[in-house]
Design a protein around this nucleic acid. Structure first.
Lengths: 151, 151
DNA sequence: CAGAATAGGACCAACTTGGTCCGATATTGA
DNA sequence: TCAATATCGGACCAAGTTGGTCCTATTCTG
């Protein structure tokens, strides 16, 4: 558990197609066949990415979608927020008033807030450009985590 | 989105009750009334925490649950894994063979792997002890993230 | 032996997610 | 101007997951 939705996952894959063929215009149809993501799903995702101003769109014949910004100016965090909504690890870390029921007696909400911030930070520190070229070391700065001992 | 389940959330809250009254034995009933989490839910959660060897249990009259380890030896990551299963931000970051369908053509799976590692790292670096006493600065080591500008 | 507690299940309702479909609108080219 | 092609913006539905309940062992204490 603790996973992003498949929508966001697909979204990143689609965006890497844009990022790699710099500046090209893609139709939804093209993207679907290139990525093997079902077409109606592609449409749904692109729609959200346009609303988030990550993609630009152009209708009509020979229309399609283009990146609205440079790949190194688009963060993974931004993409996930566009497709899945704001990252909120728990109710109380969201922007909305929480409805968790034990809010009053809850002793840990702001500890969660910090963990949430850490995760958002991790997500915001990786750009689409870094997702696209897997050779770099985008994450070495903060992957110095304790090894997970799995017996 | 990108949230832990309520089960894990409740679990942490319950465990902080243990952590604060050092070494005490709690019955499920007690914990439910102290935390305002519904009793059957408490039972379900405690069950899983015992299986993960985070809690110890003792049956019979005056039975109950106790921490099996010191609060500073229990990580948030471990708790979440016990209650929600292993953290896997996407299909391909899990232990199971992924069924994502576009695996062959997917260019970003190991970039995800690294982001996943970063999140697991963040979760593993915070202990129950640190969740319990909110005064400390458990996270300052890695919360130096770019500020999220929200206009 | 009786009572109190956990253990381990099956079980169900409600919400979320993944996915589809359709009509409206805009743009291009003949 | 008209037809073709594309996005846009919804509603819509099925399946899976989650949150939550309940019931019956089993184990320990007094």
């Amino acid at each position: 558990m603790l996973r992003i939705t498949r929508q966001a996952d697909y979204g990143i894959v689609l965006l890497t197609l844009f990022a790699r063929s710099n500046g090209r215009v893609f139709s939804a149809r093209e993207l679907a066949s290139a990525s093997h993501v079902p077409l109606p799903m592609v449409g749904k995702i692109l729609k959200l990415l346009v609303q988030a101003e990550i993609l630009g769109s152009h209708r009509g014949m020979h229309g399609g979608y283009t990146l609205a910004r440079r790949p190194d100016e688009i963060t993974v965090g931004h993409i996930i927020e566009a497709l899945d909504g704001p990252v909120a690890i728990t109710d109380c870390t969201g922007h909305l008033p929480s409805e968790c029921g034990i809010e009053q007696t809850c002793p840990v909400s702001h500890a969660w807030q910090r963990i949430n911030d850490a995760i958002v930070g991790a997500l915001d520190r990786v750009t689409l450009a870094e997702m696209t070229c897997p050779v770099g070391d985008p994450l070495t700065a903060f992957t110095g985590h304790r090894a997970q001992v799995q017996p």
